[in-house]
Amino acid sequence: MLAESLSLIFSALLETLYMVLFSTLFAIIFGFPMGIVLVLTQKGGLLENLHLNKALNSIINTARSIPFIILIIILFPLSRIIVGTSIGSTAAIVPLSIAASPFVARIIETSLNEVDKRIIEAAVSLGANTPQIVFKVMLKEALPSLISGLTLTIINILGYSAMAGAIGGGGLGDLAIRYGYQRFRTDILIVTVIILILFVEVVQRAGNRWSRRFDKR
């Protein structure tokens, strides 16, 4: 009984880690360039282009305003096209990545906009081109804030993954609902919640530590 419960919890934990890891990765791959384009094309940006900026803003706002549980349902067909199925942890990565990408874009945008404009201008005056300013100045100066943002993203995706789990994605959220809630297995519910709390705690502490370490201001 105990061994069975433990193995259930362990495999659910692995599924959750799998979903969170890959969704974070894809969200960064899609959200990162979007965030940089947002900053470069905004008013007063290095490549000011208000039309592009406005279009991108609308897309991001639209995506962010759809409740996640509905987004998953809308994206069932897409999951089926990309991974061949709409259930399971792998299928859940599709809506998770798509939901988290605009979030990451905003995080990147906010972090980069915190960089002192005068420092960017100094780099311009020294003859730096736009990619050099993005990678050697903006991202470097914003690193502590970017790490904090990444921490926030991972914790957010963890929360979302519980929801994705509830409609067939597996993982700890799914376990808590199916066993803990529907089958009155309070012990499993409690253990699941404790694991989630620990997970958030570890990610947050690691994030804070790294962020501080790179902050020389």
């Binding site: 002192d116 005068r118 420092i119 201008e121 100094a122 780099a123 005056s125 020294l126 003859g127 730096a128 081109n129 050099q132 050697k136 100045v137 470097k140 100066e141 690193l143 502590p144 790179f214 902050d215 020389k216 201001r217």
Partner: peptide, 25 residues
């Protein structure tokens, strides 16, 4: 070369890296 009232140095880079910046780019 331009210098400024508020220096505008890269805050997360060392003195060495700041001076190396124009050379690196």
């Amino acid at each position: 070369g331009m210098i400024f009232q508020h220096f505008n140095l890269l805050q997360n880079s060392t003195v060495y890296k700041n001076i190396a910046f124009p050379l690196e780019i």
